[in-house]
Amino acid sequence: MIYAILFISFIGVGFFGFGGPEAILSMLAHLATEEHNWLTQSQFADLLIVSRFVPGEASLNAATLSGYAASLSEYGMASSMGASLAAMVGLALPSYVWAELTYHLRIPTTWHDGLTHALALLKQAIPGLIGGAAIILASADNIGTLQSPWHLGISLFIMLFVVIGNVVFRINAAALLFLSALAGIMLL
């Protein structure tokens, strides 16, 4: 059953995941941490951190990890590989179908105005999708709560530091993650 749920859920991500590698993360974060309890927010955040340093796009690794975590507790290690595969095939299938469709079909000229507007509106929504993923992940287990003011304070400082460092001073992501890890080791 979990195989079917994973397969169908990831098909949905593949078919509707407009907007590039970052925008698709909001769909995956919502799916894995809110709609289903496959992953905790901190597991998802760790996934994004690790995916920056190992082969494989974050969305592919998210499919692997979701399958693994969703079935591990109930069915054990052997079945979790199958669950990862089900999620991965679900994510890949729409790409295959889209490739076939776009190879064979020509878009009717009467659709052009509609598609142009749809894509323009989607393009403006993409920052919202990425921001939505950031808000989903800004949960108690990732940044702390008011009951743990030290953890929360350091987290907010790191977030602010990273945003300003990346946007204003154009420090690259790997360097910012490295500095944050050092801050975490010393302060948290």
Partner: peptide
Amino acid sequence: SALNGMRPAIIGLLAATAFRVGRQS
């Protein structure tokens, strides 16, 4: 501890990406 430091950083990186993408469109 290192992960505790990097988790807010990855959230910050998402926010920064959202901002940079938005600035273009």
